[in-house]
Simulated assay, not measured.
Amino acid sequence: MRRVEHVMGFPVSLRVDDEEIPDRAVDAVFAWLRAVDARFSPFRADSEVCRLDRGEVTRPSDDLREVLGLCEEYRLATGGAFDARRPGRGLDPCAVVKGWSVQRAAGLLTAAGVRRFCLNAGGDVVVAGGPWRVGVRHPEDADRLCAVLSVTDAAVATSARYERGDHLVDARTGAPATGLLSLTVVAPTLTEADPVATAAFVLGPEGVTWAAAREGCEVFAVDAAHRVLRTPGLPVAATDRAASDGVAADRSAA
């Protein structure tokens, strides 16, 4: 079964390889993501996030408190480089909401007994079963890959400049993060992989080491000098083992 919908501003695709597929669980995935968009979007004036930011909500929902707690965790862990509240802008927890909500959606499938699936939300992926092959897009050529990963029961998230330009900002300085071209994180859940990738990208080259030090995280990055930086435990597919190992491997992304 394959299904694609446009939710939260990007395409979300679900592939299920089980022989028996519970339609209600699949419907619940997309219903949940649509509800998240309505509740947590900083672009909807009636969302809970916007109403909280305007002071119209004094007691956030349990879900929003969880999201804000994660935002604060990464703000502290990055010394303020990652921050859902930047000067001159309203509350924007999107960097946490995406991974958190998609992982929760994956949990709905698992709870319904789905054993093998791939849930892809705008390029960030959660898989169950496996192994699944996940391509890492070349940061300067949309038609090429610079790595192929082999993942089982895990998540993969990428932060990069190639889709939206210099949209990721170091909240400490207000300047765009330009030290890396792309950074991919493999982690047990997308709740971890997505914000870690964003936070590490904002930190720049030092963010590779920062992300690699987090438990369960493996990293693949391409810096502004086109060097590949990767952790030794990165689950590279058998057909893509030409890259050398090590966090500071020096190899062209081409």
Score class of each variant (00 low, 15 high):
Val125Gly: 03
Ala157Val: 13
Ala147Thr: 07
Cys146Asp: 05
Ala155Arg: 04
Ala154His: 03
Gly129Leu: 04
Ala147Ser: 08
Gly135Ile: 15
Cys146His: 10
Asp143Thr: 15
Val127Gly: 04
Leu149Asn: 03
Val156Met: 13
Gly130Val: 08
Asp124Trp: 06
Asp143Arg: 14
Thr152Trp: 00
Thr152Pro: 00
Ala128Val: 10
Asp143Tyr: 04
Ala155Gly: 14
Asp153Phe: 05
Ala154Asp: 14
Arg137Ile: 06
Asp143Lys: 12
Cys146Phe: 13
Ala128Ser: 14
Val148Asp: 00
Ala160His: 02
Val151Leu: 11
Glu140Ile: 00
Ser159Tyr: 00
Trp132Arg: 08
Ser150Glu: 15
Gly129Gln: 05
His138Glu: 10
Ala142Gly: 07
Asp124Tyr: 09
Arg133Glu: 15
Val151Phe: 01
Thr152Asn: 00
Val148Leu: 15
Trp132Met: 10
Gly135Asn: 03
Asp143Cys: 10
Gly129Thr: 12
Val126Asp: 02
Ser150Thr: 07
Thr152Ala: 11
Val134Met: 08
Leu149Pro: 09
Ser159Cys: 08
Arg137Val: 09
Ala160Asn: 02
Ala147Val: 09
Val136Leu: 15
Ala128Glu: 11
Arg161Glu: 03
Ser150Ile: 02
Arg137Asp: 05
Arg137Cys: 07
Arg133Met: 09
Asp143Pro: 02
Val136Ala: 10
Trp132Gly: 06
Pro139Ile: 11
Val156Ala: 10
Ser150Lys: 02
Ala157Gly: 03
Val136Ser: 06
Gly135Leu: 14
Asp124Pro: 01
Ala147Asn: 13
Asp141Tyr: 00
